[in-house]
Simulated assay, not measured.
Amino acid sequence: MNADLAPTAATDLPTAAGRVPVRAATPADAEGIIRMRSAYVLSSPLDEEWIGRSAEELAPRLTPAGDARAFVVDAPDGTMTACALGLIHPVLSAPAYPRGLAARVHIVATDPGFRRRGYARAVVTALVDHLADVEAVTLFELHASVEAQPLYRELGFTGSPALMRMTRLPAAAAAPTPQSGPAWVPPEQYAETVLKATAFACVHFTDQDGRPLQLHSVYSPGHPWQMVGGTMDHGERPFETAVRECREETGLAVSGPPRLLATVYGLPGAQWPYSTIGMVFDGGRLTAEQIRAITLNPQEHDEVRVLPVAEWEALMPARDFARLSAVEEARCTGVAAYFGTWDWGNE
């Protein structure tokens, strides 16, 4: 941080609604920023005691020697209508972080009566420009709502709403040099730009008559009937996950070699900020005795059921039934399926 930095003067930023008078916040703005956070960011508003305590904590951090920087827009009557607050913190130096400084955009709030005027874009742009050009911050992070994600992508952030990041190097450091091939960037910087996904693996069982087996969930009303399986742990390969989850959820032991029935993919949505990719393996046919011997984990499932494919349709969401149908077709035909529309929020 630059300890000698004085707050900058008001900056007029052009927006679709005209010129927005953005100014740097001072310690006197601490209470207004906290009230904006309480009213428009937090799920439960703060009481007056906490507003006072938080404002007292924030005020000295908004001084030149502090670690907080904020930009605000005032209404004609002097009340605060929009604000963006960033907190500067150190990180280990790297080519993408030459000064070892990062910032989290902690608060972005706009009074509902002043929205759709470009105020949020204006205060975030002013904050990021100041942190990058004056404070030498190169790594920026923030949490975003799904609705706000497009704005932050336009400003240069990447990733999912759960964690969006941007690396902004000084102009001299970022200037490309003539070369014959594509520009090289550090692996940690490139990793910020690529797809993030969660992975799962399942085992698909049927009974001796070829009827699919499903487990009834006690924790997911949106997906009441499920295949045997779950999310991959770090360091696992997909079939290892399928074997482990099968043992944990049913007590059954699955042996290889693995036979892949389907690959499943889903886009992120409001319910989950990452893409989802999974593999479904053939567990074979179970005897009636094996099905009766299944031992369920009561924290996950409370019933085992076997039904003809058509009878599952009335018991599960349309996309779950479509996935089950694709897996069943792959089992019957021997041709692995690709089910690419198991998106979050598409029930």
Rank of each mutant, 00 (worst) to 15 (best):
V228N: 05
P90W: 15
M232G: 06
G32R: 03
V185F: 12
F321C: 06
C332F: 14
P258E: 03
T110S: 03
A102R: 01
T198W: 13
D233E: 13
P14D: 10
M80V: 08
P98A: 08
G283E: 01
G251P: 11
H106K: 11
M166Y: 00
V327G: 02
A94G: 06
A270D: 14
P21E: 04
D233C: 12
M1H: 08
T177K: 06
A171H: 13
D129G: 09
V304W: 07
L155P: 02
D207N: 07
G118I: 06
L307G: 03
A314M: 09
P178H: 06
E49A: 15
R165V: 07
T138E: 06
W225Y: 06
G230A: 08
Q214I: 12
S145H: 14
H89E: 13
F114T: 05
A175S: 12
M232A: 08
G78L: 11
V128R: 04
P150D: 10
P14K: 01
H130M: 04
A199H: 15
D209C: 10
L139A: 00
V108F: 04
A70D: 06
Q299S: 13
E249Q: 14
R53E: 12
G334N: 09
S54N: 12
V264T: 02
L142P: 05
A59K: 02
G345Y: 13
S220T: 12
S145Q: 12
R121W: 01
F321T: 00
A82D: 02
E154K: 11
P45I: 15
S93A: 15
A126G: 07
P257S: 10
Y152T: 02
A122P: 03
N297P: 01
E154D: 13
I277M: 15
N297L: 08
T206D: 09
A120F: 07
V134Y: 10
E248H: 14
S44F: 14
I33R: 03
P7I: 02
V22W: 07
R23C: 05
P95F: 10
A172P: 14
T11Y: 08
A262P: 06
Q189L: 15
A288M: 01
A25L: 06
P90I: 13
